[in-house]
Amino acid sequence: MSVTVLSPGLLTTVQDAGRTGYRQFGVSVSGVMDPRAMRIANILVGNDENEAVLECTMMGPQLRFDKANVIAVTGGDLGPTLDHQPVATYAAFSVQEGQTLRFTGLRTGCRAFIAFAGGLDVPLVMGSRSTYMKARIGGLEGRKLEKGDVIGFRKPTAEILNLVQRRIAPEVTARTEYAVRVVMGPQDDMFTQAGIDTFLGETYTVTNEFDRMGCRMEGPVIEHKDGGDIISDGIAFGAIQVPTAGKPIIMLADRQTTGGYTKIANVITADFRIIGQLKAGDKVRFVKTTIEAAQDALLTERAALAALRTMAGSAYVKERKPKQPKK
C-alpha cells in the first residue's frame, strides 16, 4: 500500500514531465507547472528527474502513510507538517507508517510538489502519468485527488543513503514582483511598436483567472496592428497570447495544442520556475532576451540539476539494497 487521501486540498493532481509525442493529435502536454521544482524533489529522493509527483495548489492535501517511504516537498511553501511537526521544504525525509502529512497554509509561491521515493503506482497513459483533466486521462482516472483515494507506491524505501545531504535551500521566496525573461515571437510582428513598448515597459498583474491552462493578466492594453486573430498554429508552454482585447494570457501546462490568437512572446524555459509559482495579485514585468541567452540559461539550469544529483549521491534507491556499500 501507500497513502490514503484524508483531504484532497484545493487542487492536487498527479503530474510528471508531461505527455509529449501526441501534440500533433491534439493531446495537451499537461505535466507539472514548475518543472524545476519537480526535478529537484525527485533528485532529493533518488528518483528519475521526471518521475510523477503530486502537484498541490495553494492548499495542500492531508495524506496518511500506510507504508513508510522517503519523500521531499519542493516548490512553494504551503506549510508542510508531519504529525503536526513542521518539516523543511527542499529536503528529503522519512515518513513512518501511520504518520500524516498535512499543509497548514501558503507562505511562498503557489504550488508545492511532493516526490515519493520509488514513484507512485499510477498507470502510464500514452507514455505519461500526468493528469489531463479535460480529456479525463492520466493520474487517478484523469481527475484531481478526492477524499478516500488510495495511491500506491511502486518501490518505496524506508530509508535512503546520504539523507542529510539531500537538502538544499528553498528556492521559492516570498515575493510579489517578478521580472520574467521572454524571447519575442512568433507573432510579435502583428503588434505596433507602441504595443511592443507597452508589453516590455509596463507591469502586469496576475488575475484570479489562473488555472493549469493559462494565467490571465491585467494591465495596459497591448496594441495590435490589425487585431489579435490568426490562422491557428501551435502553442508552446509559456506562450504569451494577446487576443484583440490586448490583455496578455500566459499559456501553461494544460493549454490547448493549437490556438487562433496572436502570441507576442514566449517565457524562456529557465523562468518557468517563476510563472509556475505566480498567484493572483503578483506583478510581472516582461524582459526581452535573445534566443542564445535563453538557451544558455536553459543549459546552465540543466547543469545545476546534474550537479545537485551528484551532490545528493543519488544512486537510484532501488539499486541500493542488493549491494550495501561499506563506508
Binding site: 524571447v183 512568433p186 490562422i231 498554429d233 501551435g234 502570441k263 524562456i268 524555459t269
Partner: peptide, 17 residues
C-alpha cells in the same frame, strides 16, 4: 522560422488555409 520559445520554433509556409 518564427521563435516559439527556446525549445521549439514554427516553420511558417504561408498565411492562408
Amino acid at each position: 522560422f518564427l521563435l516559439t520559445g527556446d525549445t521549439s520554433l514554427s516553420a511558417e509556409f504561408g498565411n492562408e488555409i
